[in-house]
């Protein structure tokens, strides 16, 4: 399938982008970062085309049963990578902080690599339970939320590295060397918060569309199945983050840790529940 070949090309572009961003840190050559950014754009455009083309392919293969490319583990991982890069590029437009790329593009690259090497890329028709527009709304909102949390996690890691270094330096002077390329800790902390601010309503929408779908398919909007429960756990963690920050002044390190824990829970909700626990959700496990 052409879409799968395009996704391969995307993976290569993200690889180049990731390597360039990482190389940018020691070399500090602006041109290296620029290549990284261009590669990310090229990958994003390729991937957008591939997603659209896969949609078209599903109609070619399945006739009237074609569907949006959002319905199995392979497609969801690919979409996840796409949303991460989309958010990253938006962030790049706003902040122009190229060093962030080294901490965000790896998520996208790892996702694409896993999908291309480890997951089944066949376009199968949908079983009855998945034939619903709610599936599309649910997947889109969830993964936009997850991607925002991925960004928050990336900048939180940067925050911890930089803040840790600055603490070791005498009288907390700004870190030199590679770390001088990092945005200031204040900006990192702010991006962490803003990304969660974007992700939280999206996650809420993801949970709500999932509940609406469950209600439409079998008459209960909430049944405490492991996937649902984990999405709620993630939601609680980020709600705690927002409240601790806003009202108890949990900024900086504590906020960064909470953000990393939140993203860990997000990934467990997305993958761990299917691979480790059992539940209603049909995809996962290959």
């Amino acid at each position: 399938m052409l879409s799968v070949k395009l996704f391969n090309a995307t993976t290569i572009a993200y690889f180049v982008s990731m390597i360039m961003f990482i190389a940018f840190l020691p070399t500090r050559a602006k041109v290296v970062a620029l290549i990284g950014t261009i590669a990310a754009y090229i990958g994003f455009v390729l991937q957008t085309g591939a997603l659209g083309y896969r949609w078209y392919e599903s109609y070619q293969l399945l006739g009237a049963d074609g569907r949006a490319p959002l319905s199995n583990l392979y497609e969801s991982v690919v979409f996840f990578a796409w949303t991460i890069v989309m958010f990253y590029l938006l962030l790049d437009l706003k902040y122009k902080q190229r060093s962030i790329g080294a901490f965000v593009m790896p998520f996208a690259f790892l996702g694409m690599t896993w999908a291309q090497l480890g997951l089944n890329d066949a376009i199968d028709p949908l079983v009855p339970a998945l034939q619903s527009n709610w599936l599309t709304y649910h997947v889109i909102t969830c993964f936009l939320g997850y991607a925002a949390f991925a960004i928050a996690c990336g900048v939180s890691i940067m925050y911890l590295i930089k803040a840790g270094k600055e603490e070791n330096n005498a009288e907390g002077s700004p870190a030199g060397g590679i770390l001088s390329l990092f945005p200031s800790v204040r900006i990192l902390d702010d991006i962490n918060y803003k990304a969660i601010m974007v992700g939280f309503p999206l996650l809420s929408l993801g949970i709500i569309t999932g509940a609406a779908w469950a209600n439409y398919a079998w008459g209960t909007y909430w049944s405490w199945d492991p996937k649902e429960t984990w999405s709620l756990i993630v939601w609680f963690i980020y709600a705690a983050f927002l409240h601790a920050r806003f009202t108890r002044g949990w900024v900086g390190k504590k906020a960064a840790w909470l953000s990393i824990i939140g993203f860990g829970a997000t990934i467990f909700c997305y993958l761990g529940v299917n691979l480790v626990l059992s539940g209603l959700h049909s995809y996962g496990g290959g």
Binding site: I233, F236, A239, R248
Partner: peptide, 21 residues
């Protein structure tokens, strides 16, 4: 108190795990 809110949120998150395992 907001401390209670944060503690409750964290307790809800942590205890909810039991039923998924």
């Amino acid at each position: 108190s907001l401390k209670l809110a944060i503690i409750t949120l964290i307790l809800l998150a942590v205890t909810s795990i039991i039923g998924t395992v």
